[in-house]
Design a protein around this nucleic acid. Sequence first.
RNA 1: UGUCCCAUGGUGUAAUUGGCAACACGUCUGAUUUUGGUUCAGAAGAGUCUAAGUUCGAGCCUUAGUGGGACAACCA
Length: 565
Amino acid sequence: MSDNSTEKKSVAKTRNFIHELVEKDLLEGKNNGRVHTRFPPEPNGYLHIGHAKAICLDFGTAEKFGGKCNLRFDDTNPSKEDQEYVDSIQEDVRWLGFDWEDRLYYASDFFDDLYNFAVRLIKEEKAYIDDQPADLISQQRGTPTKPGTESPYRNRPIEENLDLFERMKKGEFQNGHCVLRAKIDMTSPNMHLRDPLMYRIMHAEHHRTGNKWCIYPMYDFAHGQCDYFEGITHSLCTLEFEVHRPLYNWFADQLADGDYRPRQIEFSRLNLSYTMMSKRKLLQLVEDKLVNGWDDPRMPTISGMRRRGFTPHAIRNLVEKVGITKTEGMVDIAVLEHAVREDLNKSAQRVMGVLDPLKVIITNYPEGEIEMMDAINNPEDESAGQRKVPFTRELYIERDDFMENPPKKFFRLAPGTEVRLRYAYFVKCENVIKDENGNITELHCTYDPASRGGNSPDGRKVKGTLHWVSATENVEAEVRLYDRLFSVEDPANQKDTDFRTLMNPDSLIVLQKCYIEPFVKEAKPLDYFQFERLGYFNIDKDSNNEKMVFNRTLTLRDNWTKQMG
RNA sequence: UGUCCCAUGGUGUAAUUGGCAACACGUCUGAUUUUGGUUCAGAAGAGUCUAAGUUCGAGCCUUAGUGGGACAACCA
């Protein structure tokens, strides 16, 4: 009902500077009113939350203007790429809720077209083969402040270039023997225009084209051209490609016949505090086994976040909250966490679990009796219904829900005080049992039979309501608690420090024996829950009936813990 | 000795030039609550990097500074 108005509001808020540029193009009648974008990952790693921003923007912009968005794998460097990544990327994009329909492309689909285009440029004296080694070419390129100098091979005759290029393709040369360069301007203030490389020799097996090719196009020569071949109108990318734009346009001008030109527009990438978003470094974490794979719940990868219990809706919501600009900033991880809690609070099934058990014996409750208490599945959603929770003489409560010498404003159980066991009874602590070391081993309590369901007919109130689990009727589970992987706000930007030393040693805590109400037996992997008063959890993908494993997605906000410092 | 980009509360974003700036997160109060959650009510917090200019009027336009970032991979 009110959902409609919030929907409208959020759609209106999605407007950004890219939408304005697209609207302007449309108004000027460019591209026959077409809007066509693409999401172009290189399959050299798993997608992370930063990619989610690009995905939402690419697909979102197309959708907003009734256009289309392609998925394209930018697979021009076979030495780093792999089919595993191709598969995971598709799974993750779909999971986020986007659909490229039948428009799945690979840069490698266009290798022939790119080759032909290169030949054309050679014939037009706009490209040449350079036989110099990499370091010499690099030297001649100059620096950002000093102009470059021309290669001695720059004015090679067309026929010789054609011949050499063909022999490059045929595999007559070894890696690094020569390259194809565009002939532009070695004195340009823009480094990328100083005769950029178009092709290099790489004798490597490609995950799709196998050994068909031993020369591969460079990013600048492939990307814009693929945009052109696919009919992309707006090529959205991150800020670091801003300086590439003149080159992007130069190639487009050489290639284009009519009026149609793809247009590159840049936006700032997502930076999240305490989060590492470099594929290279994430790969290193995986390879060094500092995490348990790309989908480790601590990873900022889409697959890791999925396993952790984050929802696609929450991730898309974060992207919307963060907005699209060219300002490079650092988004507080709290914004993401808020988006997750906001979503989970509305949708998560409530359940009671005890992570650190303290046994409670209800001395005046009959031994062997099991009472099924009614519990609400989700107070935010009446349609979620109710369930039964078994209540018995012996129970577990959370160890820190009891204090022998409670400070003021402690609402929970203490000697002589009365609290409510949620959905069950009022109980009063009569006796504290300790072992020889003085550690509390169990509590003896009495219950008020008249308070069944959690209210006393005499109207008396209690300060606290505790969650609990029957000590005999329960599910035993392993629970994994996660904290941030890095303990510094900007782990990517610590110069001179190995980022691995910045990792939080307490980022993963495994609790072996925890007790959860029987209800969870019916759930399946990746289902998520809110454990009353403890936080959001989901069932790990590796969980099974013999061993249930839960991941803690996030804690609940907790004022009491905050007060305690 | 360059070229390009950016600059609004702590953070991220808004603001047809025309009432000294709005929203979200975070923070802090208070109320309600069978989750110290949620919800609700409220508060604090910037005068828009600086300077000059245009204008009756500038966060927005101009110029010059300042600060930050990108660019010198046979990576993308």
